[in-house]
């Protein structure tokens, strides 16, 4: 085989290049990642987990939660949004004419004039009113300045857009920084249940979470989630009822004289779920959490 060395070299280069691009490069970039800064704040992201929550990740893993739940919010775009919050002494109709004349005459606003006119069509003065929503941040700052000059108050915001955001599963997409303390990362690839990347924001009540694990359909009527009863102990009520016993509706409660008590694993799992927040604005996933008034 005269070409043996060439074949070896070609294979070496091909595999070496993929290893370099798919293993070495990402490791060099993200393998050394540390906490990042939260936008417009001195806080760091993500927050270190408590011991219970760290153990809870292993419970999440062993219970197979990732088989039906993802932990990744997706985003298809971003928008700079300008909202009118106060119109002062102006009449809506006059203001409409003024804004339309602005977006026809100021060069920076020309490209947005159709979008602004469409947003204003049929507006009869109800507030807050979204005036512009698009990629161009100069339109937002310019329009905000021009309106401020005539006494109209506006708010400029950056929002993420996409189906997951519209479902209320988060305010921005998940990025590598969110998984810094996850080992192993529980991305998941099937959404038989909802995404859990922000479940700590959506359902921050410990008792709700525990009851939902024990009897999902006692809280969410048509839930398809299996009941994780092995994370709970059903025991005879002693001299005093246990302080952490679940308060269950009649049809889900055990027989009289018994109570349902969460085990350590259940408490760890809930502690972990409550740390899933993904709600800090980061440089790589920007959004405006609170409105910035102009």
């Amino acid at each position: 085989m005269k070409t043996g060395f060439s074949v070896f070299l070609a294979a070496f280069v091909a595999l070496g290049a993929s290893w370099f691009g798919l293993v070495y490069g990402p490791l060099k970039q993200l393998g050394v990642a540390t906490e990042t800064k939260v936008l417009q704040s001195d806080a760091k992201w993500p927050l270190q987990r408590t011991g219970d929550a760290t153990l809870g990740l292993q419970v999440y893993r062993s219970a197979g939660c990732a088989a039906c739940h993802t932990e990744q919010v997706r985003q298809t775009g971003s928008a700079n949004v300008l909202t009118i919050t106060e119109i002062g002494s102006h009449q809506p109709a006059d203001l409409k004419g003024f804004i339309n004349s602005l977006s026809g005459s100021v060069i920076e606003l020309m490209n947005a004039s159709n979008a602004v006119a469409a947003n204003l069509a049929g507006w009869n003065g109800e507030l807050p009113k979204v005036l512009y929503s698009g990629a161009d941040d100069t339109v937002v700052s310019m329009l905000g300045d021009k309106l401020k000059a005539v006494g109209v108050k506006t708010e400029a915001r950056v929002v993420a857009t996409g189906a997951d955001i519209a479902r209320g599963w988060g305010t921005r997409q998940s990025v590598a920084a969110d998984y810094l303390y996850d080992a192993p990362v529980q991305l998941g690839n099937l959404r038989a249940g909802p995404d859990l990347a922000t479940i700590g924001v959506r359902a921050p009540d410990v008792n709700w979470q525990l009851q939902h694990l024990y009897a999902p359909r006692s809280l969410v009527k048509n839930s398809t989630m299996p009941a994780f009863r092995f994370l709970f102990a059903v025991q005879k009520i002693g001299a005093q009822p246990a302080p952490d016993a679940l308060v269950l509706p009649k049809e889900f409660a055990p027989a009289d004289g018994y109570e349902v008590v969460p085990t350590a694993e259940a408490k760890q799992l809930v502690a972990y779920l409550l740390t899933l927040k993904n709600n800090a604005p980061l440089y790589e996933a920007p959004f405006t959490p609170i409105t910035v008034a102009k």
Partner: peptide, 13 residues
């Protein structure tokens, strides 16, 4: 969906 750091910069508050 950001395609460049310049695009990302336009959305920084």
């Amino acid at each position: 969906p950001y395609q460049s750091s310049a695009q990302l910069e336009a959305f920084q508050p």
